[in-house]
Design a protein around this nucleic acid. Structure first.
Lengths: 385, 385
DNA sequence: TGGCATTTGTTGGAGTCTACAACATATACT
DNA sequence: AGTATATGTTGTAGACTCCAACAAATGCCA
């Protein structure tokens, strides 16, 4: 006879999720966090260990009275695979339940790879990994970050202009070749998930995340949960048409945000190409051309206008900026904050924080792994059956 | 010894909530909806009836084989009070659990009433109601709709320009005078809640709602839940700065959406004032001045730009327009839809519906009552203790 | 060094809640 | 009138957690 709708399994998931998000901790701590009874916690932790999902270690030497409590931690042999599909490379990784990256392989490609070739490549590498480095590991699934519009429900990539993909059934292609539960989402949305759980917006329930790479993508966290919208396309700030205060600030007539706030415009001014963010930041500070700071200030003003609109609508406690937008922000953080506050409703702006993204290049990979772990963390029994 | 974290109470709440949202229905239907066992449903419905929260009626004559199932319905003697604070009137209502309005009283006032006077008036009328029409009724609480920025957590009205309120502790003022659990929220946010549950967006999980009255307010539904944001200020579309495609369309330099899309501009053109929406619609169609349709088309274009931004960011399945915006929409519904689709991402626009609000003047009252019912619907035992 | 307070693990039993199965009941169909 | 079907009703068993009492491991202090 079944229990109360799988209360047990849900509790197993809760404990596993706490260990996953907040790291190793004592059983006493888990008891407090879950609100469950000591004895129940012991039983849950024991079952998770028996399932091979967690390991229990010796108590840490704490300087307090009382019987020491054993430390529970996620098993290092449980991983999710993550793939990041970029124009010039495919990055594959195996991410542990503690967000450490067990394996990473960046495979450069000449120009964008078609979806089938991408899936083939992933399938090939995954097979190799399973027989060698990942032998004896449990693989929860695979998550893929794509720079484009993704219908999350079935992992169909509707449009990825930079990859030249249209309506590519990436989830099914990869699931077929790997035999793994596959998930696909927009790269910026996954970055938002990662920054929310482990980065700059850790513990913040209402977050607007913007990431500037080739375009501007974004993601939302509302009530502590990632927002996909009806089909999973949410967060496309780059296609918004910002209200540009001074018409002289306009560069692209009838253009969208990512036409105005644009890394390539800065690169062109500097006469550079193909450099990464730190190099770009260095090149900016090294430049003597007065047009460069003027252009950056212009882009910052327009970004502020777009952010102010988002703040009015969503009233987030934090805006996180990644990629090129983090570089832009770092050059004059106070200015951007002041401009946003000036253009949004005063009440919404008063407690607003703006921060650069904290996680590095692994952002998308960690986010993708998180999606691949989701089922396991919710229903550990079903997912590990 | 406690049960599994109040599973029973949560299930009581689930059943009550289904009856509240979807109306009277058979126990068999409840069994199917909840996924619980027949016997459990019977026990739950029995307990709710014993608590005076529901009533059980004779089975409906259905033309199918099998033993007829008794119909459960919410009790008509359970109400929430709702208040709508407008510039020229205070409207008070008692709303039943089936959303029917048991009592309504519109109290005209000369100019905006200060918060204390508003609370006094509410307290006075509520006392009178409790001794007469509402004698023998259970009152779940009181919800208040305010045209302004409300910090939902403590019901502090931060700004309500039309009422000339600033940092008014309305929740506490009213709670003190009525002895009821009081809740305050923005009027448009409450309209969104009502339209989502019982109006045009019924059953739709991702909704953008805009309401044009003196300004433009709004509300969001994400994952089926109303979005307040960090402090409860979310949804303030009216303060956004829309990207106006054609500069000639601008009327308010550096203005915000509600300066451009504005009922008063149309009224002024028609030489009218102080008329309601149906009268305004009639006056528009009756007018021979060619400037009127031109102005409406201009406002529609700007509204479309603002909506397109929201669609990109939130990927809703439906946009609901209320008040003056519904009038504007009704004059050329196809145009607005086409303009939004044109300016937003094609994928986000393809399944998007735009609809006028369905609920009438009771929108804010029903939304306010919904908020006041929330605790009762979640934890019926605690809330009715 | 030994006793005490404190904290937490451990164990067996009790309480809460639901599922289940068997039976009863009310309807439509033939 | 008999049968099939759907649902209410009842008693019991199972799942899960809480609780209380006890045991164990640590720090503190005389």
């Amino acid at each position: 006879m079944e229990a109360a709708l799988g209360a047990r399994e849900a509790n197993l998931g809760r404990v596993l999720q706490i260990l996953h998000r907040d790291g190793p901790q004592s059983r006493a701590s888990l008891t407090e966090r879950t609100g469950l009874n000591r004895s129940t916690t012991a039983s849950l932790v024991g079952e998770l260990a028996a399932l091979g999902l967690t390991v229990e270690g010796a108590p840490e030497p704490t300087n307090r009275v009382g019987r020491p409590s054993p430390i529970a931690a996620v098993s290092p042999r449980v991983v999710a695979l993550a793939a990041n599909t970029e124009v010039d490379a495919l990055t594959l990784a195996a991410v542990r339940l503690d967000q450490s990256v067990a394996l990473r392989e960046r495979i450069p490609v000449d120009g964008p790879l078609p979806p089938e070739a991408t899936a083939d490549l992933i399938g090939h590498r995954v097979r190799a990994w399973r027989e060698t480095e990942l032998a004896g590991h449990r693989i929860a699934g695979i998550g893929m970050a794509v720079p484009g519009l993704v219908r999350v429900a079935d992992g169909l990539v509707r449009q990825a202009p930079h990859l030249r993909w249209r309506d590519a059934p990436l989830r099914d292609l990869v699931a077929e070749r790997t035999g793994l539960a596959a998930h696909v989402d927009n790269d910026a949305s996954l970055g938002a998930v990662a920054e929310h759980l482990y980065g700059a917006a850790r513990g913040i329930d209402h977050v607007v995340y913007l990431d500037g790479a080739s375009g501007i993508g974004g993601g939302l966290i509302v009530h502590g949960m990632p927002v996909g919208g009806a089909a999973g396309y949410a967060g496309e700030f780059g296609q918004n048409r910002p209200g540009v205060g001074d018409p002289a600030d306009r560069r692209a007539p009838d253009g969208v945000l990512e036409d105005e706030v644009n890394r390539d415009r800065v690169l062109a001014m500097l006469g550079r190409a193909g450099i990464d963010e730190p190099a770009l930041a260095a090149a900016i500070t090294a430049s003597a051309d007065p047009a460069v700071p003027a252009e950056l200030a212009r882009q910052s003003r327009i970004l502020a206008a777009a952010l102010a609109d988002a703040v009015n609508v969503l009233n987030p406690s934090m805006v996180v900026l990644g990629g090129f937008l983090a570089t832009l922000f770092a050059l004059a953080p106070g200015d951007l904050v002041a401009q946003v506050r000036e253009q949004c409703m005063p009440a919404s702006g008063e407690d607003l924080q703006i921060r650069p993204a904290l996680l590095g290049v692994d952002r998308q990979l960690v986010g993708a792994a998180e999606v691949a772990f989701r089922d396991l963390l919710r229903l550990p029994l079903q997912a590990s059956a």
